[in-house]
């Protein structure tokens, strides 16, 4: 729990920082999720009932209670990307990664998810991998992006 203590310390054990604490912990988990024992520890440290913390976790779309891949690939499915061909991007990703949205590749490298607009409409259709946004995607450029993450692994 050293990691959790450090994050709690950074945010002064303040209840109002719960969301910020959970975001940081999820990032540090390496699997893009919030391990149950970490969350229990946070709830205790902040003197909050577990159901309150769980309520916050499940309210916000970015949190996951289940382990996900090292790299979270989000395909925008909102209007601007929809009319710019996001469906094609999703199909290409499904084929390239051999998974459906909501699933994780066997090597644990990627999880594919559908997301709402993340403000990259000027380069739609767009995807987001972790913090990085990729747009104006074609089959070739998409493959190159995925391969760059594979090479990193």
């Amino acid at each position: 729990m050293k990691i959790v203590d450090e994050v709690l310390e950074k945010f002064r054990y303040a209840k109002e920082n719960l969301i910020q604490i959970l975001l940081e912990l999820q990032m540090l988990s390496g699997k893009n999720y919030l391990p149950e024992e970490w969350v229990e520890y946070v709830a205790q440290a902040l003197d909050m009932p577990m159901n309150k913390v769980y309520g916050v976790m499940t309210f916000y779309g970015m949190f996951s209670t289940k382990p996900r891949g090292k790299n979270l690939i989000e395909v925008c499915k909102s209007g601007p990307c929809h009319v710019s061909g996001s469906e094609g991007v999703e199909l290409m990703l499904e084929k390239e990664l051999a998974i459906k949205p909501g699933e994780t590749t066997e090597d644990g490298l990627f999880t594919l998810e559908r997301s709402n607009c993340f403000g990259a409409c000027d380069i739609a259709p767009a995807i987001k991998i972790g913090e990085n946004v990729y747009g104006n995607l074609t089959p070739d450029s998409l493959k190159a992006v995925i391969n760059s993450y594979r090479a990193e692994a």
Binding site: E16, L18, I19, Q20, G55, Y60, G61, M62, N116
Partner: peptide, 26 residues
């Protein structure tokens, strides 16, 4: 700077301040 965590409704003023307080953004 306070980060949201993926909730469109937090663009609503009162939901937004709830979220800054670390709560669900209703």
């Amino acid at each position: 700077v306070v980060s949201g965590a993926g909730a469109y409704v937090c663009g609503e003023n009162t939901a937004l301040v709830e979220s800054i307080e670390g709560k669900t953004g209703r």
